[in-house]
Design a protein around this nucleic acid. Sequence first.
DNA 1: ATCCGCACCTGTATGC
DNA 2: TGCATACAGGTGCGGA
Length: 283
Amino acid sequence: MPELPEVETVRRGLAPVMEGQVIALARVNRPDLRWPFPADMAARLTGRRVLRLRRRSKYILADLDSGETLLIHLGMSGRMLVSGDPLGRFVHDHPAAEKHDHVVLDMDNGARITFNDPRRFGAMDLLETATADQHKLLALIGPEPLGNDFSEPYLVAAFKGRNTPVKSALLDQRIVAGLGNIYVCEALFRARISPRRKAGQIAAARVAGLVPVIRQVLAEAIEAGGSSLRDFRQADGELGYFQHSFDAYGREGEPCRAEGCTGTIARIVQSGRSSFYCPLCQR
DNA sequence: ATCCGCACCTGTATGC
DNA sequence: TGCATACAGGTGCGGA
């Protein structure tokens, strides 16, 4: 479900109710998600203080006072819902448990964080904080698109010699972290680049132009609280609203919104996933 | 080394 | 109403 803006939105929703708080009780309702949970996960979480919530790519990382870091990935359908009245804003009870509530964290401040994931493509693991970057799932991930390491020269070099479509290259987490199907479509639309074009065959200046466009679309999406498709919610249950700003994604058959363009958004399938683009102005 | 297709799983929308 | 099919925000893995 979530790409970088949605994960960042979830992190921002969780931080005020989790950072500095102790996990009074962790409950784990099944042995696995995509992979088995680490041994004794509930016991290793219970009683631990959450020092800080970080994000790397589409992973949320919770540093604990035990020297371990809880790694969380939401997969396609994962949600983190906050209930209780941790900030004293208003009073409401915890909702009834639902199907697919796999992990529940009751915090000392009364907040309850429920991880719900119908498709179970999500994941959790416990890592040594000191060496978290070297964890198998994190070691090969490319630069954060909103950070300084993601630069024009970097992307030009990363695309050089690549024979794969630019759509696939931007989905490759080793090239740049955090992009998924939606934001790749949106970035390519804004850059006027066809998703079918081979990454290594795009002029350097046009590749360089992708960098600010990617930054811009992600920043706008975070500002809007992410995109709500199907059931994605912010941690407080509010809907994000960036989906109303899509120019390409999900707009098959609708008119191209590029200034002066009379084209129609098309849908093609690339490596098993839908790409939405305007064949007229994206070249 | 690169690239592609498959697999993992459930829920929902669509069409007959 | 029932049933089959297609599709969905991700990504690790095996084989070409």
